[in-house]
Write a protein that binds this DNA or RNA. Structure first.
Lengths: 185, 185
DNA sequence: CAATAAAAACCGTCCAGACGGTTGGTAAGA
DNA sequence: TCTTACCAACCGTCTGGACGGTTTTTATTG
């Protein structure tokens, strides 16, 4: 029963449950009890994989970063090898359908306001993206603007109560993609 | 001792204390006890002014929105009456020095993930801005991009550990201001 | 201008449940 | 036999909020 494979599965189930808990119960709803219950695991079991809540938050954070990074990579390969390629991939990854950014934003927020030290540990990844995005053949200021606008997508999407913003979403994405090309350095 | 004026002062002290609590103890650190203690008021006193935690969050939210609105108004009056005037005021308000946006973002986040109904109540204000920003003589897509990028400023600033990003900050702001002018409709 | 009624502005205590985390165990594979 | 993977019960503290009291302000009279 306790094979290594099943252990990893449990770990992933716990991470998935944590994400679901955030989606369903909000920031302060992310508690050990809730996550354990959501995953169908005892709290002791949860604490076996993540020995503290901080460790759990860090786990979610790292996992989401990894998923997001994979997404960027995916879109990068589909993108034409012209200046702004990384930026366009980054934009597309943010505007992809699955609601990853919302959870990512939430967890980043928790970490940010509550445990800056933790955030620092994950920041290396962020730094790597930053460098790629800024050495992408687009002016620094323009690149920063594009990244910021893309980052804010989840925020924006969450504030406006679900109107049929599909058109706007595409419009914003296309505008950002265009901005990567109008400013080749 | 408890004149109407001082009562309002207490209310404002409570709101200030709540903001300070967020800054100092993070999202989950925002508790009634903590706020009351920070304000030097009993918990009963706090609950007199804000009969529930939800009411407190709503109070902070409304207050911050008001402050921000006043800021936008202020910068609007300084701005040249050419297309993109509201957008430029909005950008400047976001990039102003005082660290309002971080708390705003935090509270919006709490409300957003935890109590969407509450957020809806404050959304009228947001809607008003939105309309102004979109009827500003700049194309819709461009306007949306600019607003999003401005919104994300606080997020961005908080994630990157205080490097000397002052130059970047100004660069981003100026780029956004420029983008309001390059796209007159 | 008192006298007084009534409302508003608080305080201090208490509580039931939720919180993060500990402990002592069991079962199974290596 | 030792380690890994888990469970169930439990602990001390904190949580949002209820409650009853007390003091101060305001409104209403005579």
């Amino acid at each position: 029963m306790a094979t290594k494979q099943e252990a990893t599965q449990t770990r992933e189930r716990l991470l998935a449950a944590a994400r679901q808990t955030i989606r369903g119960r909000g920031i302060t709803g992310l508690t050990l009890d809730a996550v354990a219950k959501e995953a169908g695991v005892s709290k002791g079991g949860l604490l076996h994989h993540f020995p503290s809540k901080e460790a759990l938050v860090e786990g979610i954070l790292k996992h989401l970063f990894e998923v997001f990074e994979a997404r960027v990579q995916h879109y990068f390969e589909l993108e034409a090898p012209t200046p702004g390629r990384w930026l366009r991939a980054y934009v597309r990854a943010n505007f992809a359908d699955e609601p990853l950014p919302l959870e990512l934003g939430t967890v980043v927020m928790i970490a940010m306001t509550e445990n800056p030290a933790l955030l620092g540990r994950v920041q290396e990844d962020y730094q790597r993206w930053e460098e790629r995005l800024l050495a992408d053949g687009v002016s620094r200021a323009r690149a920063l603007v594009i990244r910021q606008a893309a980052d804010a997508f989840w925020l924006d999407q969450s504030i406006r109560t679900s109107r049929e913003d599909e058109a706007d979403r595409l419009a914003v994405m296309n505008e950002l993609l265009k901005l990567t090309e109008m400013d080749a350095r």
